[in-house]
């Protein structure tokens, strides 16, 4: 546990000792607000945050891999991985420490969108449960993207490569569940397969959670996805740490 906390604390602080955290926060907060109002927040005449949460998948596809790309690629590039893995820390502690540090950082970014919550509360009487479900869905989705990002960061020592691969992988996971993609796929694939692809996608699970339906299958989807990608990342890292 000691190794986990040490890695977690160091990693979390390191976001704020580099400009990364500030750039990330400014871009995220600007676009989360801009896209919400552009999507017709006032025109909808409803005191809810649907317009806000709707844009999260698209924003996270680009922003979460940006926060994740350095996690391992940088350690391998600068050689500090040799220091880390000659200290009494297991691969699992290091992988989890870094993952949770990045996840908590994204949760901090999400928490900083509180003016949106104040706005809808001032304008009307929003359904608090729905808003909670929206935040939970967004945080779980960010965790999923982050786990994908960790995996690709462990795979390549080049941050740009790990970023591009993570964006593509996250993009596929989101767009596979979009109605347009499913319509296209159903023209040449059997319906069962199209359904299977769509249940593997982030989108459906995110949508149903964001509507306030907290189902076991949706939460377990994200948990399994996160655990799976993190485990794969740990295995790859153990294999390639010294290459």
């Amino acid at each position: 546990m000691r190794g986990f906390w040490a890695v977690f604390r160091r990693e979390f602080k390191s976001y704020f000792t580099t400009p990364l955290a500030y750039v990330f926060l400014v871009v995220f907060l600007f676009f989360s607000g801009y896209l919400t109002f552009k999507a017709g927040f006032f025109e909808a005449r409803q005191a809810d945050m649907t317009a806000f949460f709707m844009n999260m998948p698209l924003m996270f596809v680009f922003l979460v891999p940006a926060a994740a790309m350095r996690l391992w690629a940088e350690e391998r590039k600068t050689g500090s991985i040799e220091l880390l893995f000659t200290l009494p820390i297991t691969v699992a502690q290091a992988v989890l420490g870094k993952f949770f540090a990045a996840w908590v950082f994204i949760i901090v970014a999400m928490a900083m969108t509180f003016p949106m919550l104040i706005t809808v509360s001032y304008l009307g009487n929003p359904d608090k449960g729905l808003i909670f479900a929206g935040y939970l869905a967004s945080i779980l989705m960010a965790g999923g993207f982050l786990a994908v990002g960790c995996f690709f960061s462990a795979m390549s020592r080049n941050q740009v490569i790990s970023f591009v691969l993570s964006v593509v992988a996250c993009g596929v996971l989101v767009f596979a569940g979009m109605p347009t993609t499913m319509n296209y796929l159903s023209t040449f694939l059997p319906m069962g397969l199209v359904q299977a692809i769509s249940t593997m996608s982030f989108q459906g699970h995110f949508d149903s959670m964001q509507r306030g339906v907290l189902e076991f299958k949706d939460i377990s989807y994200f948990v399994i996805l996160i655990a799976g990608w993190i485990t794969a990342g740990g295995v790859i890292l153990d294999e390639r740490k010294a290459n």
Partner: peptide, 23 residues
């Protein structure tokens, strides 16, 4: 190690404290 790996963005104090955390 040969190339003295360290977290270059950290201060010496913070780095040594991190090592103490781990140990």
């Amino acid at each position: 190690a040969e190339n003295v790996p360290a977290y270059s963005e950290m201060s010496v104090g913070a780095f040594l404290n991190f090592i103490c955390d781990v140990r």
